[in-house]
Nucleic acid binder design. Structure first.
Lengths: 330, 330
DNA sequence: CTGAAAGCGCTTACAG
DNA sequence: CTGAAAGCGCTTACAG
């Protein structure tokens, strides 16, 4: 900036005014400064700007998700990025890998970078430690799962209702013995979805049988084994609900191994590529990642720009996609 | 930092020394400073640090990829992040969407943030505009595709050889009429893969017939239509090579529609989820995204830390995975 | 409308 | 081993 001022023969302050698009600059000086900036390929140092500005904006936002390569979060980030890039923000992206300690480390790192805000898919069981940062003015929006012991905006899918509807879809087709495969109960969505299952089963007057309900499944392979075992037991289920992507695929594999894919119904939570190409196609509850990403971005930017209204809890609707596997009758 | 100094009753410089782990600090002062920092939850401002440090490190790296939600790039980023996070770097991630103009905008934004380095999957046809930044000391590594008119490190898959081997896999099984579906020729990998196909066909003495070679396919749907048309023509191909993920899936759909999936061979470049669950399973050339991500990270950090050896061109080996579709005989 | 001085939060270069 | 002063690249607050 110093060099630009020297080349244009004006003061630092005038360059600063031109760069920041302040109106009150003589047109002649303005063009001189612009020419000098162009010639020197001057690009302002955002770090220095943030340091001195009254509002201290770093124009940087943090994205803390379970895993960058998880298709759902990748889409959320992609659409979040779309929205914020146009407003001049950059996004620091990080994976938490469901490790509570990493959540602490990464939020700390974000504070060191003085991000203006962050969105978090939390994995630890207590976010009260972030209250200090919120008070210090770091905007926070929680996505996919609400924070615990912290008041902040939340954007989630309608896990409970979507699951209830999906299970009702099965009971409506005559199923009464519906197996439930769930992921880690430490994750809020896992508990929400499970409660949706319980509600639908009760409503349909179906027994809730713990022998065909397995929670805390961590991998596709584990899901495959669980499903395989259930199908080989005395009273096998006539339908499955899998509460997540990988678990659904595990069930698909188990059914294929046993040649039962056209005889046992299956609905999964979360859509996945090629679900339509399998035979039968897999019926799923599809989350609206693009809307979630945009909503998170709008909320976060609103907060950064001074919105002080009470915290919002936004449920983004899901869609049930019937492709065949969920329409197999009991 | 000022507050920490005041609370500990020492000078700013002493706090700075403790925070930066310099050895020459009295143990007593050190513990006092540490206690004060802890009490005030002091976290250094990385922006201010970067501004004043001799080496000016921002501890921020840029990741410029085609699309954050592209599974290949998502995995590359994920493993890149793994490596660099441990060394204290954060990653600003952005999608370029194959828009040359966005590439300019985003690299400019990265310079504004004074990133220490960036890795780029370039989409424009000329990167000479980045020479200035490289000269100014911004480390750059190109991934998936080499830069044009710029000297920099490159990490790519062995596109040409992998494709040649994959097509040879088909000619070895008696195929002589092998269709080729390629993506945008503006992308280097598309041209490399295509040349691998030509080489394999020549080596096997098969004619290269332009009527079953289609380049510049942009979508799954377009690939499906192209494959469908070819299969309905007078001399349909007995095998397909699809140069990318989405194109492979398009071909799978076309084959299914015509009930030919067990009669026409198919090999795709890029692995994809569930390729093993289809029937037949889809044989593919699998890229090693984790290794690519780690390699890019190591190279970039090496450059930032002062490695001035000549630019490297690293080819990361791919793997051929036979699952059935590529083993159908002519 | 324009500019000289002060200062954001840090580290450097130099004294003691 | 410790600290007071200067300065990184900007913007603020104030003069003119």
């Amino acid at each position: 900036m110093k060099d630009v001022a020297a080349l244009a023969g004006v003061s630092l302050k005038t360059v600063s005014r031109v760069i920041n698009g302040e109106a009150s600059v003589n047109a002649d000086l303005r063009t001189r400064v612009e020419a000098a900036a162009e010639q020197l390929r001057y690009l302002p140092n955002l770090g220095a700007t943030a340091l001195r500005r009254r509002d201290g904006r770093s124009m940087t936002l943090g994205a803390l998700v379970e895993d960058l390569s998880n298709p759902f979060f990748a889409l959320v980030m992609r659409h979040f990025e779309d929205t914020v890039f146009d407003k001049g923000y950059s996004m620091i992206a990080t994976s938490l890998e469901e490790q509570a300690e990493l959540e602490h480390q990464v939020t700390t790192q974000m504070v060191r970078h003085r991000v203006d805000g962050m969105f978090i898919a939390p994995c630890s069981t207590d976010q009260s430690y972030l209250a200090r940062e919120v008070a210090a003015g770091v905007a926070m929006v929680f996505v996919d799962r609400p924070p615990i012991n912290l008041d902040a905006d939340v954007v989630v899918s309608d896990n409970r209702r979507a699951t209830r509807n999906a299970v009702k879809h099965l009971t409506d087709r005559g199923h009464t013995r519906i197996a439930y495969l769930g992921n880690m109960e430490t994750i809020w969505t896992a508990r929400e979805r499970r409660s949706g299952y319980d509600a639908a089963m009760l409503e349909a007057g179906c027994p809730i049988d713990d022998s065909i309900i397995v929670m805390n499944i961590r991998s596709e392979e584990q899901a495959r084994v669980v499903a395989h075992d259930m199908l080989g037991a005395d009273e096998p289920p006539t339908a499955f609900f899998a509460s997540q992507n990988l678990l659904t695929i595990g069930v698909v594999k188990a059914l294929k191994e046993l040649g039962l894919e056209h005889h046992v119904a299956l609905v999964g939570y979360d859509d996945f590529t090629l679900a339509d190409l399998l035979s039968p196609g897999i019926s799923v509850v599809a989350q609206d990642a693009p809307t979630i990403g945009h909503t998170v971005a709008e909320l976060l930017i609103g907060r950064i720009e001074g919105d002080v209204s009470p915290s919002k809890f936004i449920e983004v609707p899901t869609t049930f996609i019937a492709r065949g596997s969920g329409e197999i009758l009991a």
